[in-house]
Design a protein around this nucleic acid. Sequence first.
RNA 1: GUGAGUAUAGCUCAGUUGGCAGAGCACCAGGUUGUGGCCCUGGGGGUCGUGGGUUCAAGUCCCACUACUCACCCCA
Length: 411
Amino acid sequence: MDILRGFKDILPQEIKRWQKLEETARETLKLFGYKEMRTPLLEKTSLFSRGVGEATDIVEKEMYTFLDKGGESVTLRPEGTAGVVRAYINNHLENSPFRKFYYIGPMFRYERPQKGRLRQFHQIGVEAFGIQDSALDAEIVYIDKIMLDKLGLTDLRIEINNIGCPDCRPKYLKSLKSYFEKYKEKLCDDCKKRLNRNPLRILDCKNKTCKSIASNAPKIHEFVCDGCKTHYEAVKKNLIKIGIKFEENPHLVRGLDYYTKFVFEIITDKLGAQGTVSAGGRYDNLVEQLGGKPTPGIGFASGCERLIELMNYNEEQDIDYYFACMEDYTTCLKLAKELTDKSNKSVYVEYESRSLKSMMKKANKMNANFAVIYGENERKNGIVIVKDMKKSTQEEIKIEKFLENEVKRWQ
RNA sequence: GUGAGUAUAGCUCAGUUGGCAGAGCACCAGGUUGUGGCCCUGGGGGUCGUGGGUUCAAGUCCCACUACUCACCCCA
């Protein structure tokens, strides 16, 4: 029985990094008053087609969509924002004093897996509602950046761009299209298709010819409306003020339709082709689009697997007491149980009949601090042997004294 | 969906012009009859991805399929 393509088991040897990642995210977000939210993995398909955008790749070809037993079309969430917005509207959270949220959990996209890309992957996502001011944009970038700093990630760059709003972007797209139309014959096959579907994407093409044509293409800054322009300029000033370094990338495009005005990505070049570690931006029309009152929003999402790959790790095993029992497992269990009760130390009780030597080997591999030896001799004499694995010393303790002794040791 | 590469022990990988399937690590046991790490000795483990073909003989050559990896596309 094989695991599905693009799905992955996360094993104990890797789990410490996951826990550290989640812990760091929760701590950081708590500092800024963000509250955790958990929304369903499964939603109505229409939430995503309306939220993410009918014409996006995600909706067109990457969703895990099926009919449930009631005949309703449902979809495993391909991203987190749509679900949070739905929950925000459904639960009337506009009346809550807290309108800043985060989530951590799996997302699903039916894509061909490669380095840094899986069909089930995890995101830490952050969403904030109801604030139009550009200071919030800066806060969002700051939180993202500081979280990555706390994880010990280096060599990251932040790229930002202004992608306009539904008022001004169409004008830009139109001009872009007519510009590329002139060079249509020279563009690569992919870009010929993009010309009608999404001319913004041509700006991002890696083909040399397309690149040089794109370098002279009209710039969005010449087309954005006053509102978008003012906002974007203000975000830049705010970022500078709070000491966030960034680069402007006029070719930065987001793949989801709901983004407006300010967008950003945090990128590494250590991950191969999928170097975007975090990305986000403003979505001032999404709440309304999904049936809520007009409410501005902004957020970002980080790819957990990508972050984890960048985290340097020293995963140590951590067992405090390895109980090497040769008989009477129940007595060992009782000792171990009492020890955890009174001391909070971790124990591992060996119930498998093995040689003492093999048990000591195992204790060593588990990096146990102490081995408690209990066999025939100990039982007869009413003692246990407590061996300090680090110092290689051991002593015999009366079994009634064991608990008291060990509790004292850690005080 | 497209392209390229890879597939041999639990893991990482050798395997020459086609000629008895190997190493390191891991695991188990012994050396030390009840004591880990270092060392020494031994052991268990393989439909050589699957199916066909060529050949006296295929891990090796040919074909098909499948899986994985990377890249495109796209994205966290």
